[in-house]
Amino acid sequence: MTADAKPDLLPEVAVESPRGVFRRLVGRKLALFAMTVIGIIVGAALFAPVVAPFNPEEQFFEGLTLEGAPLPPGERFWLGTDLLGRDLLSRLIYGARTSLLIGIVANGIAVAVGAFVGILAGFFRGWVETLLMRFTDLMMAFPALLLAITLAALFHPSLWIVAMVIAMVNWVQMARVVYTETRSLSEREFILAERAMGAGLFRILFRHILPHLLSTIVVFGTLGISTTVLLEATLSYLGIGVQPPTPSWGNIIYENQTYFTSAPWLVFFPGFAIIALALGFNLLGDSLREVLDPTQKGRH
């Protein structure tokens, strides 16, 4: 080993401009596909009152057959109607609002808590590190869904409780990743130099550590939205997530599942919507990882 070889093989971390990242993303087919899917769903959620053909809560008299069964997809109700004769497409469009809202709020809290815990443990070391990381280990061994289901069932579920429950379960992974990175960052020469020059704690944290963590946080934050969307759907499917009449893709399936043999579209369309949104964020997160992560460059 030569004298000038670096002791640790960490790559130089360059902080890229958002515009540059975006341009490189658009060049990738899968990322472009993911952004299109996410864009369509976000657009539908934002402009729901304009886009939705009907009021999602209105129970149409002509929305049911003479025997009182839901209508299959057709000319008037494009994706068919549900048990109560409501338009499924309109409910799906309004349901996108619920999924995205919970996805963003719950994941936002999880990312903030996880990053905070990770930075604290990785930067301060000592007893702070021991305490926080042992607690993180403990949360890792918790059966996550069981915990979420128990919590959601025991509190009276509302949109915000569901978001909080999901955040409580999902911050752990972010904490672990950020912790590992902060730890190795805070041992690098430029941080030591800053410290030696007497830079304040906040200056080091915000000007030097945080910018370098940004790409990790963005990648895992994006992937996390997908986990959150899936968890919300599962809780709502079990009837302990978002409560009807507020439409959510999970609770549409929950409300209609007993009729799925005769009216399968009531399960299929919301199911595909959930998969599309989760897939979109997973693909986008993975592309972001490839674009942002310098250690991955030139591999595979």
Partner: peptide, 9 residues
């Protein structure tokens, strides 16, 4: 990306 209840059903 698929929730297990959707796959199951």
């Amino acid at each position: 990306s698929s929730p297990q209840f959707v796959i199951g059903i």
